[in-house]
Design a protein around this nucleic acid. Sequence first.
DNA 1: CCGCAAGTGAAGCCTTGGCAACACTTCTGT
DNA 2: ACAGAAGTGTTGCCAAGGCTTCACTTGCGG
Lengths: 158, 158
Amino acid sequence: MQQDRPEESEAIVEPERFNQARAAQSMAILEDYVEMIGDLIGEFGEARITDIAQRMGVTHPTATKAVSRLKREGLAISRPYRGVFLTDEGAAMAELVRARHRTVVDLLVAIGVPAETAELDAEGMEHHVSDVTLKAFEAFLERATSVSDTIEEAPRKG
Amino acid sequence: MQQDRPEESEAIVEPERFNQARAAQSMAILEDYVEMIGDLIGEFGEARITDIAQRMGVTHPTATKAVSRLKREGLAISRPYRGVFLTDEGAAMAELVRARHRTVVDLLVAIGVPAETAELDAEGMEHHVSDVTLKAFEAFLERATSVSDTIEEAPRKG
DNA sequence: CCGCAAGTGAAGCCTTGGCAACACTTCTGT
DNA sequence: ACAGAAGTGTTGCCAAGGCTTCACTTGCGG
Protein backbone atom coordinates (compact mmCIF):
# COMPACT_ATOMS: atom_id res chain seq x y z
CA MET A 1 0.00 0.00 0.00
CA GLN A 2 2.81 2.36 0.85
CA GLN A 3 4.07 4.10 -2.23
CA ASP A 4 7.32 5.97 -2.39
CA ARG A 5 7.57 9.08 -0.30
CA PRO A 6 7.76 12.40 -2.15
CA GLU A 7 11.08 13.66 -3.41
CA GLU A 8 13.25 15.66 -1.04
CA SER A 9 12.62 18.85 -2.97
CA GLU A 10 8.87 18.52 -2.58
CA ALA A 11 9.11 17.62 1.04
CA ILE A 12 11.00 20.82 1.75
CA VAL A 13 8.97 23.17 -0.41
CA GLU A 14 5.59 22.00 0.82
CA PRO A 15 5.78 23.21 4.44
CA GLU A 16 7.10 26.58 3.37
CA ARG A 17 3.74 27.89 2.38
CA PHE A 18 2.31 26.96 5.76
CA ASN A 19 5.19 28.64 7.51
CA GLN A 20 4.58 31.71 5.43
CA ALA A 21 0.88 31.65 6.22
CA ARG A 22 1.70 31.34 9.92
CA ALA A 23 4.14 34.23 9.78
CA ALA A 24 1.53 36.37 8.05
CA GLN A 25 -0.89 35.50 10.79
CA SER A 26 1.43 36.72 13.52
CA MET A 27 1.63 40.07 11.75
CA ALA A 28 -2.10 40.28 11.11
CA ILE A 29 -3.20 41.41 14.53
CA LEU A 30 -0.38 43.90 14.78
CA GLU A 31 -1.45 45.36 11.46
CA ASP A 32 -5.07 45.55 12.54
CA TYR A 33 -4.19 47.39 15.73
CA VAL A 34 -1.84 49.78 13.99
CA GLU A 35 -4.44 50.63 11.38
CA MET A 36 -7.10 51.06 14.03
CA ILE A 37 -4.91 53.33 16.12
CA GLY A 38 -4.17 55.36 13.02
CA ASP A 39 -7.89 55.69 12.34
CA LEU A 40 -8.61 56.81 15.88
CA ILE A 41 -5.82 59.38 15.87
CA GLY A 42 -7.17 60.70 12.60
CA GLU A 43 -10.66 60.97 14.03
CA PHE A 44 -10.05 62.10 17.60
CA GLY A 45 -6.44 63.23 17.68
CA GLU A 46 -5.59 60.41 20.06
CA ALA A 47 -6.20 56.68 20.48
CA ARG A 48 -7.39 55.60 23.89
CA ILE A 49 -7.25 52.06 25.14
CA THR A 50 -10.99 51.86 25.67
CA ASP A 51 -11.74 53.02 22.13
CA ILE A 52 -9.21 50.65 20.63
CA ALA A 53 -10.67 47.78 22.61
CA GLN A 54 -14.21 48.67 21.64
CA ARG A 55 -13.47 48.90 17.94
CA MET A 56 -11.46 45.71 17.91
CA GLY A 57 -14.22 43.94 19.76
CA VAL A 58 -12.03 42.89 22.68
CA THR A 59 -11.79 43.79 26.35
CA HIS A 60 -9.43 46.49 27.47
CA PRO A 61 -6.75 44.23 28.98
CA THR A 62 -6.46 42.54 25.61
CA ALA A 63 -5.99 45.90 23.96
CA THR A 64 -3.43 46.87 26.56
CA LYS A 65 -1.49 43.71 25.91
CA ALA A 66 -1.57 44.31 22.17
CA VAL A 67 -0.33 47.87 22.63
CA SER A 68 2.51 46.54 24.78
CA ARG A 69 3.52 44.36 21.91
CA LEU A 70 3.30 47.27 19.49
CA LYS A 71 5.56 49.28 21.77
CA ARG A 72 7.99 46.40 22.02
CA GLU A 73 8.07 46.21 18.23
CA GLY A 74 8.71 49.94 17.97
CA LEU A 75 5.41 50.69 16.25
CA ALA A 76 3.73 52.72 18.98
CA ILE A 77 4.44 54.72 22.09
CA SER A 78 2.35 55.55 25.13
CA ARG A 79 2.58 56.79 28.70
CA PRO A 80 0.45 55.47 31.55
CA TYR A 81 -3.06 56.86 31.55
CA ARG A 82 -2.32 58.74 28.35
CA GLY A 83 -3.29 57.90 24.81
CA VAL A 84 -1.46 55.65 22.40
CA PHE A 85 0.44 57.13 19.47
CA LEU A 86 2.20 55.67 16.47
CA THR A 87 5.89 55.98 15.74
CA ASP A 88 6.91 56.99 12.24
CA GLU A 89 7.30 53.34 11.46
CA GLY A 90 3.88 52.59 12.87
CA ALA A 91 2.26 55.39 10.93
CA ALA A 92 3.90 54.16 7.74
CA MET A 93 2.61 50.67 8.37
CA ALA A 94 -0.87 52.00 9.06
CA GLU A 95 -0.86 53.77 5.73
CA LEU A 96 0.27 50.68 3.84
CA VAL A 97 -2.29 48.51 5.58
CA ARG A 98 -5.06 50.96 4.88
CA ALA A 99 -4.13 51.18 1.21
CA ARG A 100 -3.91 47.43 0.89
CA HIS A 101 -7.26 47.01 2.58
CA ARG A 102 -8.86 49.40 0.11
CA THR A 103 -7.32 47.61 -2.82
CA VAL A 104 -8.50 44.22 -1.65
CA VAL A 105 -12.03 45.46 -1.05
CA ASP A 106 -12.08 47.18 -4.43
CA LEU A 107 -10.86 44.06 -6.14
CA LEU A 108 -13.48 41.87 -4.51
CA VAL A 109 -16.18 44.32 -5.50
CA ALA A 110 -14.83 44.46 -9.04
CA ILE A 111 -14.97 40.67 -9.17
CA GLY A 112 -18.62 40.82 -8.21
CA VAL A 113 -18.62 40.35 -4.43
CA PRO A 114 -21.28 42.39 -2.60
CA ALA A 115 -19.74 45.40 -0.87
CA GLU A 116 -20.63 44.29 2.64
CA THR A 117 -19.26 40.79 2.14
CA ALA A 118 -16.16 42.23 0.51
CA GLU A 119 -15.53 44.30 3.60
CA LEU A 120 -15.89 41.31 5.90
CA ASP A 121 -13.78 38.90 3.86
CA ALA A 122 -11.11 41.48 3.12
CA GLU A 123 -10.48 41.87 6.81
CA GLY A 124 -9.12 38.35 7.00
CA MET A 125 -7.70 38.04 3.51
CA GLU A 126 -5.70 41.23 3.30
CA HIS A 127 -2.99 40.08 5.65
CA HIS A 128 -2.08 37.27 3.30
CA VAL A 129 -1.85 39.37 0.17
CA SER A 130 1.79 39.63 -0.84
CA ASP A 131 3.28 42.62 -2.63
CA VAL A 132 3.31 40.76 -5.90
CA THR A 133 -0.35 39.88 -5.60
CA LEU A 134 -1.22 43.40 -4.52
CA LYS A 135 0.44 44.77 -7.63
CA ALA A 136 -1.54 42.33 -9.73
CA PHE A 137 -4.74 43.49 -8.03
CA GLU A 138 -3.92 47.11 -8.77
CA ALA A 139 -3.14 46.34 -12.38
CA PHE A 140 -6.39 44.43 -12.74
CA LEU A 141 -8.38 47.23 -11.17
CA GLU A 142 -6.86 49.73 -13.54
CA ARG A 143 -7.85 47.60 -16.50
CA ALA A 144 -11.33 46.93 -15.11
CA THR A 145 -11.86 50.61 -14.39
CA SER A 146 -10.99 51.73 -17.89
CA VAL A 147 -13.28 49.09 -19.32
CA SER A 148 -16.21 50.13 -17.13
CA ASP A 149 -15.50 53.76 -18.02
CA THR A 150 -15.92 52.86 -21.64
CA ILE A 151 -19.15 51.07 -20.90
CA GLU A 152 -20.61 53.48 -18.39
CA GLU A 153 -19.53 56.79 -19.80
CA ALA A 154 -20.28 56.21 -23.43
CA PRO A 155 -24.08 56.17 -23.00
CA ARG A 156 -23.86 59.11 -20.62
CA LYS A 157 -22.13 61.17 -23.23
CA GLY A 158 -24.33 59.98 -25.99
CA MET B 1 -9.84 68.02 20.62
CA GLN B 2 -12.28 65.22 21.39
CA GLN B 3 -15.00 64.99 18.80
CA ASP B 4 -18.18 63.06 19.27
CA ARG B 5 -17.85 59.31 19.52
CA PRO B 6 -19.26 57.22 16.68
CA GLU B 7 -22.94 56.29 16.63
CA GLU B 8 -23.99 53.19 18.52
CA SER B 9 -24.69 51.34 15.29
CA GLU B 10 -21.15 51.85 14.07
CA ALA B 11 -19.66 50.88 17.39
CA ILE B 12 -21.43 47.54 17.28
CA VAL B 13 -20.94 46.70 13.63
CA GLU B 14 -17.23 47.53 13.53
CA PRO B 15 -15.90 44.80 15.82
CA GLU B 16 -17.96 42.13 14.06
CA ARG B 17 -15.62 41.85 11.15
CA PHE B 18 -12.69 41.31 13.45
CA ASN B 19 -14.59 38.69 15.36
CA GLN B 20 -15.41 36.97 12.12
CA ALA B 21 -11.78 37.12 11.01
CA ARG B 22 -10.72 35.62 14.33
CA ALA B 23 -13.28 32.84 14.05
CA ALA B 24 -12.05 32.04 10.55
CA GLN B 25 -8.53 31.93 11.88
CA SER B 26 -9.41 29.35 14.51
CA MET B 27 -10.80 27.12 11.77
CA ALA B 28 -7.89 27.68 9.41
CA ILE B 29 -5.45 25.26 10.96
CA LEU B 30 -8.10 22.61 11.37
CA GLU B 31 -8.91 22.95 7.70
CA ASP B 32 -5.28 22.70 6.70
CA TYR B 33 -4.75 19.54 8.68
CA VAL B 34 -7.95 17.96 7.42
CA GLU B 35 -7.00 18.69 3.82
CA MET B 36 -3.49 17.40 4.37
CA ILE B 37 -4.72 14.19 5.95
CA GLY B 38 -7.07 13.74 3.03
CA ASP B 39 -4.18 14.17 0.62
CA LEU B 40 -2.03 11.65 2.44
CA ILE B 41 -4.81 9.08 2.57
CA GLY B 42 -5.31 9.58 -1.13
CA GLU B 43 -1.62 9.07 -1.81
CA PHE B 44 -0.65 6.38 0.64
CA GLY B 45 -3.90 4.93 1.93
CA GLU B 46 -3.16 6.23 5.39
CA ALA B 47 -1.97 9.39 7.12
CA ARG B 48 0.81 8.93 9.64
CA ILE B 49 1.70 11.47 12.27
CA THR B 50 5.25 11.86 11.00
CA ASP B 51 4.11 12.51 7.44
CA ILE B 52 1.48 15.00 8.57
CA ALA B 53 4.06 16.80 10.68
CA GLN B 54 6.59 16.88 7.88
CA ARG B 55 4.17 18.28 5.33
CA MET B 56 2.81 20.87 7.69
CA GLY B 57 6.30 21.90 8.61
CA VAL B 58 5.89 21.23 12.33
CA THR B 59 7.29 18.72 14.79
CA HIS B 60 5.43 15.54 15.46
CA PRO B 61 4.08 16.46 18.89
CA THR B 62 2.46 19.49 17.31
CA ALA B 63 0.83 17.29 14.72
CA THR B 64 -0.32 14.92 17.44
CA LYS B 65 -1.91 17.77 19.32
CA ALA B 66 -3.65 18.98 16.19
CA VAL B 67 -4.99 15.51 15.51
CA SER B 68 -6.29 15.39 19.07
CA ARG B 69 -8.23 18.51 18.39
CA LEU B 70 -9.55 17.08 15.12
CA LYS B 71 -10.73 14.01 17.01
CA ARG B 72 -12.34 16.16 19.66
CA GLU B 73 -14.15 18.07 16.90
CA GLY B 74 -15.32 14.84 15.32
CA LEU B 75 -13.35 15.31 12.11
CA ALA B 76 -10.86 12.46 12.47
CA ILE B 77 -10.30 9.17 14.26
CA SER B 78 -7.16 7.29 15.20
CA ARG B 79 -5.88 4.55 17.46
CA PRO B 80 -2.54 4.68 19.25
CA TYR B 81 0.40 3.84 16.98
CA ARG B 82 -1.99 3.55 14.01
CA GLY B 83 -2.67 6.02 11.25
CA VAL B 84 -5.10 8.90 11.30
CA PHE B 85 -8.32 8.72 9.30
CA LEU B 86 -11.08 11.17 8.51
CA THR B 87 -14.70 10.81 9.56
CA ASP B 88 -17.37 11.41 6.94
CA GLU B 89 -17.59 14.95 8.20
CA GLY B 90 -13.83 15.34 7.99
CA ALA B 91 -13.71 13.95 4.47
CA ALA B 92 -16.47 16.30 3.39
CA MET B 93 -14.59 19.24 4.84
CA ALA B 94 -11.41 18.14 3.12
CA GLU B 95 -13.22 18.10 -0.19
CA LEU B 96 -14.69 21.55 0.31
CA VAL B 97 -11.35 22.97 1.39
CA ARG B 98 -9.59 21.45 -1.54
CA ALA B 99 -12.15 22.80 -3.99
CA ARG B 100 -12.03 26.24 -2.43
CA HIS B 101 -8.25 26.24 -2.55
CA ARG B 102 -8.31 25.45 -6.26
CA THR B 103 -10.83 28.18 -6.93
CA VAL B 104 -8.83 30.78 -5.05
CA VAL B 105 -5.63 29.85 -6.84
CA ASP B 106 -7.39 29.88 -10.19
CA LEU B 107 -8.87 33.27 -9.48
CA LEU B 108 -5.55 34.76 -8.49
CA VAL B 109 -3.97 33.41 -11.63
CA ALA B 110 -6.84 34.74 -13.72
CA ILE B 111 -6.30 38.16 -12.16
CA GLY B 112 -2.70 38.03 -13.22
CA VAL B 113 -0.84 36.71 -10.18
CA PRO B 114 2.11 34.43 -10.99
CA ALA B 115 1.21 30.78 -10.33
CA GLU B 116 3.77 30.26 -7.61
CA THR B 117 2.78 33.40 -5.72
CA ALA B 118 -0.87 32.49 -6.15
CA GLU B 119 -0.22 29.17 -4.46
CA LEU B 120 1.55 30.80 -1.53
CA ASP B 121 -0.95 33.58 -0.97
CA ALA B 122 -3.96 31.34 -1.45
CA GLU B 123 -2.82 29.24 1.46
CA GLY B 124 -3.47 32.09 3.85
CA MET B 125 -6.33 33.78 2.05
CA GLU B 126 -8.56 30.81 1.36
CA HIS B 127 -9.68 30.42 4.94
CA HIS B 128 -11.25 33.85 4.88
CA VAL B 129 -13.18 33.41 1.66
CA SER B 130 -16.87 33.20 2.51
CA ASP B 131 -19.38 31.20 0.49
CA VAL B 132 -20.72 34.34 -1.09
CA THR B 133 -17.28 35.41 -2.20
CA LEU B 134 -16.44 31.93 -3.41
CA LYS B 135 -19.55 31.95 -5.58
CA ALA B 136 -18.49 35.30 -7.00
CA PHE B 137 -15.05 33.86 -7.75
CA GLU B 138 -16.56 30.93 -9.59
CA ALA B 139 -18.84 33.17 -11.57
CA PHE B 140 -15.96 35.41 -12.50
CA LEU B 141 -13.82 32.49 -13.57
CA GLU B 142 -16.59 31.20 -15.77
CA ARG B 143 -16.86 34.56 -17.47
CA ALA B 144 -13.10 34.97 -17.76
CA THR B 145 -12.76 31.49 -19.21
CA SER B 146 -15.33 32.07 -21.92
CA VAL B 147 -13.70 35.36 -22.77
CA SER B 148 -10.25 33.84 -23.07
CA ASP B 149 -11.76 31.04 -25.14
CA THR B 150 -13.02 33.62 -27.53
CA ILE B 151 -9.66 35.30 -27.65
CA GLU B 152 -7.50 32.22 -27.74
CA GLU B 153 -9.56 29.97 -29.93
CA ALA B 154 -10.51 32.44 -32.56
CA PRO B 155 -7.00 32.81 -34.00
CA ARG B 156 -6.51 29.07 -33.70
CA LYS B 157 -9.57 28.44 -35.80
CA GLY B 158 -8.72 31.19 -38.22
C1' DC C 1 13.66 -14.18 18.03
C1' DC C 2 15.61 -10.39 19.61
C1' DG C 3 17.58 -5.87 19.53
C1' DC C 4 17.69 -1.35 17.70
C1' DA C 5 15.93 2.41 14.82
C1' DA C 6 12.03 4.71 13.61
C1' DG C 7 7.57 6.14 14.90
C1' DT C 8 4.44 7.58 18.43
C1' DG C 9 2.89 9.29 22.77
C1' DA C 10 3.23 12.18 27.08
C1' DA C 11 4.80 15.91 29.82
C1' DG C 12 6.33 20.39 30.41
C1' DC C 13 7.53 24.95 28.68
C1' DC C 14 6.88 29.29 25.82
C1' DT C 15 4.13 32.93 23.44
C1' DT C 16 -0.13 34.89 21.90
C1' DG C 17 -4.53 36.45 22.31
C1' DG C 18 -8.59 36.02 24.71
C1' DC C 19 -11.10 36.66 29.40
C1' DA C 20 -12.56 38.40 34.46
C1' DA C 21 -11.47 40.51 38.76
C1' DC C 22 -9.37 43.84 41.24
C1' DA C 23 -6.48 48.17 42.10
C1' DC C 24 -5.29 52.52 41.01
C1' DT C 25 -5.65 57.36 38.34
C1' DT C 26 -8.02 60.83 36.16
C1' DC C 27 -11.76 63.49 35.37
C1' DT C 28 -16.04 65.65 36.35
C1' DG C 29 -19.93 67.49 38.66
C1' DT C 30 -21.70 69.35 42.59
C1' DA D 1 -12.57 70.15 47.27
C1' DC D 2 -13.83 65.97 46.95
C1' DA D 3 -16.61 61.80 45.90
C1' DG D 4 -18.02 58.88 42.46
C1' DA D 5 -17.69 57.52 37.67
C1' DA D 6 -14.94 56.46 33.99
C1' DG D 7 -10.63 55.05 32.26
C1' DT D 8 -6.38 52.45 32.73
C1' DG D 9 -3.19 49.17 34.58
C1' DT D 10 -2.08 44.59 36.80
C1' DT D 11 -2.65 40.06 37.82
C1' DG D 12 -3.99 35.59 37.02
C1' DC D 13 -6.55 32.28 34.30
C1' DC D 14 -7.59 29.60 29.84
C1' DA D 15 -6.88 27.44 25.11
C1' DA D 16 -4.18 27.03 21.03
C1' DG D 17 -0.21 26.11 18.59
C1' DG D 18 4.52 25.98 18.64
C1' DC D 19 8.87 23.50 20.76
C1' DT D 20 12.16 20.02 23.34
C1' DT D 21 12.88 16.04 26.03
C1' DC D 22 11.99 11.68 27.45
C1' DA D 23 9.42 7.17 27.47
C1' DC D 24 7.20 3.67 25.14
C1' DT D 25 5.65 0.63 20.76
C1' DT D 26 6.34 -1.21 16.45
C1' DG D 27 8.49 -3.38 13.12
C1' DC D 28 12.41 -4.84 10.68
C1' DG D 29 17.17 -6.88 9.91
C1' DG D 30 20.37 -9.91 11.30
